[in-house]
Design a protein around this nucleic acid. Structure first.
Lengths: 323, 323
DNA sequence: CTGAAAGCGCTTACAG
DNA sequence: CTGAAAGCGCTTACAG
């Protein structure tokens, strides 16, 4: 509970000198430095960071805005961020939104109030236009692509990655391909749908609304998707879904119903989570953790005053047993 | 960027009055309140929280110390904490330790520096004795049982819960029971091992070191565990592991090897994560999220000056197809 | 109901 | 190398 003044008095130096020692500044006689260090030790002094933050104007604390931590995608992203942040001695606070607009606004208000130095949006419900109004509030970056030139972003080229998967299925002889998307209106889904339509056009197949499954996020969604597939009059021969949880659900349910994979149904997904390896599911590896790391570094640069850079993260096809 | 002084000047009132409006204090004439509110709106004023924190002496920010967020156990615990925290308008910061002592000490130092108002240890590597030295540093609670009377704790009665599972297996006719533990030296493992030995004694079975699997945490560990089981001369007829990831690994590998479950091997685990439901694995439900909620509330009480309470969380047996 | 003033505990030009 | 002093932007007794 001692403060810097008491340390200064006890050590017989000025507050300024104590502060210099605390911050590792040069120009302190070694002798005095030792006295100060001993006094700090003896009185069990610790800086009050609230005062440091007020004085310096920042807190080395960033905010991470995400819908939920229980989806592996966000868990991995967060791990990447956390790893880099720890390396730099930066703290982070979590803002769970559940895709609610008001929660995102809440996070932005915290930024305005300096509760955090900057914000990483792992996903957002807010439109680019609405977010643009907060541009002057403080530094933030997005973990998704955006046409808005004022936003710094790090993203996966979802359209290209999804096309890679589609082309792989086509190469394997599939023309009747269904897809599963996470959220109908999300940006990722938008780009995936675009890739899907383009791939269909390239092989002269018609686009069928009923072959686009939506709200496919969890293992349970995958199971449901399989049931729907099973009940179809004309069945697609391949299904390409947005994440490994969903493909795992499809795969396990197919096994239970003795449906031959990939004979009767080829399964492909995105992510390359551990579960896809365990089950032997073919997938497009997307290094989410790496995206998290880059996101952190990008935000740091942005906080430092750099312009709105746009970065991408590499991806690749992992061939396993379900295609 | 405007500060409270500018607002006061622009509104023609004192700083004190602006502060009163900001904090919703009574005794402000409605007329003045309106002027202040308008001025705040007009100048897009937002409080600098660093100053508020310094002035008040606390920040409504707590720290959550956990080994990793990528294990579902900690993810759920965190969700419970996050949910309650959001309800109370409390922020939280994450300290990932990877079970490293120095990372835990780091978190405690942050507490000492007031970076956070309090700490929730979701798990700890530090001994009770060592942690005791930090007792005066600031409020913290543990999400595990501790004999140390000075620590506030919320815990699952692991010994009783594990015994419930063992008795269930015994009731089903099993006497050759193997178990899988997470970390050999963790408190949870300690209590589970105790329950195991007591249950064996109760049915007159000898304790065999080789039937206690350690470091069983992930789905991959489960697969390995199955392989070891398969290679055994004398095979246990049932295996009871510490979490659903492990049982899922065992189950999937057993399926692959066409081993009859539960005929040749009964599988039971703890947690009741979604994956256990999907695969139909019998498990002991442990409501981790509820523990998170209680942990948060306990810490709040502790920060408020309450004594070191000890709480427990309920558990129950979920019968499915693997026993 | 209202405001002047002290206080929270640091950092950092500035002058020596 | 060293220190007195101003400044960061709030809150809160205290006196009216």
């Amino acid at each position: 509970m001692a403060n810097i003044r008491e340390i200064a008095e006890a050590a017989g130096v000025s507050i300024t000198t104590v502060s210099r020692v605390l911050n590792g500044h040069p120009y302190v006689k070694e002798e005095k430095r030792q006295i100060v260090l001993e006094t700090i030790e003896r009185l069990e002094y610790a800086r009050n960071m609230h005062a440091v933050h007020l004085s310096k104007g920042f807190s080395n604390m960033i905010g991470v805005v995400l819908p939920t931590i229980s989806l592996p995608y966000f868990g991995e992203l967060l791990e990447g961020i956390a790893e880099e942040a720890a390396k730099e001695g930066v703290h982070f606070s979590l803002y769970q939104t559940n895709y609610q607009l008001e929660k995102e606004i809440f996070a932005l208000e915290q930024l305005k109030q300096r509760q955090v130095d900057g914000l990483i949006f792992c996903s957002k419900a807010m439109s680019d236009e609405a977010l643009l109004d907060w541009r002057e509030t403080g530094p933030f970056i997005l973990c998704q692509d955006s046409g808005e030139q004022h936003f710094a972003t790090v993203s996966i080229p979802h359209k290209e990655a999804f096309r890679l998967g589609l082309d792989f299925l086509i190469e394997k002889g599939h023309t009747k391909i269904a897809i599963g998307l996470a959220r109908k209106n999300g940006m990722n889904s938008h780009f995936r749908l675009k890739a899907y339509k383009e791939a269909l056009a390239a092989i002269g197949e018609p686009y069928r609304e009923e072959w686009v499954f939506e709200r496919s996020l969890t293992i349970t969604d995958g199971q449901k998707l399989f049931s729907e597939w099973k009940g179809m009059e004309e069945k697609p021969t391949a299904v390409f879904v947005a994440n490994d949880q969903v493909s795992a659900g499809i795969f396990l349910e197919a096994q239970r119903h003795q449906v031959d994979i990939p004979g009767s149904l080829a399964i492909l997904s995105c992510d390359n989570q551990p579960i896809s390896e365990v089950l032997g599911i073919s997938t497009i590896e997307i290094n989410i953790k790496e995206m998290g790391k880059r996101a952190f570094r990008l935000l740091q640069k942005r906080i430092g005053g750099a312009g709105p850079e746009k970065l991408t993260v590499p991806y690749k096809l992992i061939k396993r047993a379900t295609v």
